[in-house]
């Protein structure tokens, strides 16, 4: 594409936007007076930000760590994820090795991480590490499971936060048929906004190219709106809570 064409398209579109916005639009119709008062001050100078307004009205995230753990476990079960508890990484390794044996897994993919390494070391089957050299996509596709760490688990929604920088890239948590994720209890946060704050501050200046909130195993309702798990991503999400 020749740069001048795109530059002129950009200039035209930005000029149209500036021209269009010369006439202000009224704030939306709102249920609460507080919201109306907030909006009346204009879009650029909101006195109360939308998230601050919404926080008390969104689904509960739990106050104490015990409440958050209970909520997370409950939400994961509703999402049809499988939850296991382990006291430490040795316990987690035993659980995962047992599952791999029971199901006769032949190859499991993983990435270098202090929580993942001891779990992989306990496996009897073949393993594929994705982050030391360029891995073969076909080999990853044929893996029975992928094991990753995570960056956070969200009580409010039952979501697991992974990133391409810290959890073995983009494909490991989506291509194998089963995704096993190791969650340390101190990684549990109450709400989605807490997790987004982690993304903002934790990765400031070195944002991973992908940050993903995984909420249960892959699913579809495209055929007669009937729920089926395992559309294209993992059919099963195994969450190992460690601590």
């Amino acid at each position: 594409m020749s740069p001048p064409a795109s530059t002129s398209a950009r200039d035209t579109i930005l000029a149209r936007i500036r021209e269009a916005l010369r006439v202000p639009a009224p704030p939306p119709h709102m249920a609460s007076q507080a919201a109306g008062a907030t909006a009346a001050s204009g879009p650029g100078s909101l006195t109360v930000l939308p998230l601050e307004m919404a926080r008390p009205w969104l689904p509960d995230g739990g106050e104490t760590p015990a409440e958050q753990l209970a909520l997370l476990t409950d939400n994961l079960a509703k999402l049809r994820a499988e939850v296991h508890r382990a006291a430490d990484l040795t316990g987690a390794a035993e659980i995962v090795a047992g599952i791999a044996r029971d199901r006769g897994w032949r190859r499991v993919a993983w990435h270098g991480h202090p929580a993942v390494e001891p779990v992989v070391a306990a496996l009897d089957c073949e393993t594929l590490r994705v982050d030391d050299n360029a891995f073969d996509k076909n080999a990853l596709e044929s893996c029975d499971a992928g094991i990753t760490a995570c960056d956070a688990a969200i009580a409010q929604t039952g979501s697991i936060l992974v990133s391409s920088g810290t959890c073995g890239g983009r494909a490991l948590s989506i291509l194998p048929h089963v995704h096993i994720v190791l969650v340390s209890l101190d990684q549990i946060v109450a709400t989605l906004s807490d997790a987004l704050e982690l993304v903002r501050t934790g990765y400031a200046g070195r944002m991973p190219s992908m940050v993903s909130f995984i909420t249960g195993p892959s699913r579809t309702g495209d055929i007669e709106r009937i729920l089926v798990l395992g559309a294209h991503g993992p059919k099963e999400l195994l969450v190992i809570l460690v601590g």
Partner: peptide, 23 residues
């Protein structure tokens, strides 16, 4: 869709970054 959260909500910042193994 009557869901608490859609299954995958993913943020993409750009192409593969240095140190990332795929993308």
């Amino acid at each position: 869709a009557g869901q608490p959260m859609t299954c995958y909500n993913t943020l993409y910042a750009g192409p593969r970054q240095p140190g990332e193994c795929d993308g």
